[in-house]
Amino acid sequence: MKFTTRELVTMAVFGALWGVVEISMGSVLHAIKIPLTGLALTAIGLLVALIGRLFVPRRGSTFFIGVIATVLKLFSIGNIIIGPMIGILAEALVAELVLDIFSKPSQLSFILAIAAGALWTFIQPFVTGLLIFGRTLLPIWLDTVDQGSRLFGLGSQAALWIVLALVVLYLVVGAIGGWLAWKLGHLVTFRLKGQAPAAV
C-alpha cells in the first residue's frame, strides 16, 4: 500500500503526538505511582492514533502511527523501554486489525479498537514476561492478582473475580477512549476543515 506524501506527513504528526504522550506523561505517571499507568497511556495513545485514522482512513495508517510512536519512545530517558516499545507496537497492531474488519471508520470500530488495544495491555506482561524477560507464569499471575487486590481492596483469595474485574476495567476504559477518540476526532476535523471527516 502506498501513501501519499500528505498522508505520510499526517501520520508522522499523529505518531509524534503519541510518542510525546508516552515520553512525557509516561515518566510523570510512573513517577507519581498512579496505578494502571500502562492502561492510561494506552487509552490516550490510541485515542491520538485513532483521531489520526480519521485524517488518513486507510488500512495500515494506525499501525504506521504506532511505528512512529515506538521509534520516538527510544528517546525516553532512563528506564528499560523494551516493554513499552513492544506495547506501543502491539497496541497499534491490535487496533489496526480491529479497524480493518470494518469497511470505514465508525464509532463502533473506534470503541472496539481501543478496547482491544487496552486488553492487550492486560495480556502483555504474560507474553513479554514469558518470552522476553524469562519469568514463569505463576509470578506474573500473582503480580496481576496482587495489583487487582490493591486496586479493588479485595483479598487475593478472590483471584478469579479480581482478574475478571481487571479485564472489565480495561475493556471499559478502552471503550471510553474509543468513544472519546470518535468525538474529539470529529471536533478536530470540524475545527481544521469546517466539515465532517472525509472518512465518515
Partner: peptide, 11 residues
C-alpha cells in the same frame, strides 16, 4: 507503598 513483586524459584 504497597507495591509487590513475586519471584519464581529460579529467582
Amino acid at each position: 507503598d504497597g507495591f509487590t513483586v513475586n519471584f519464581d524459584p529460579t529467582q
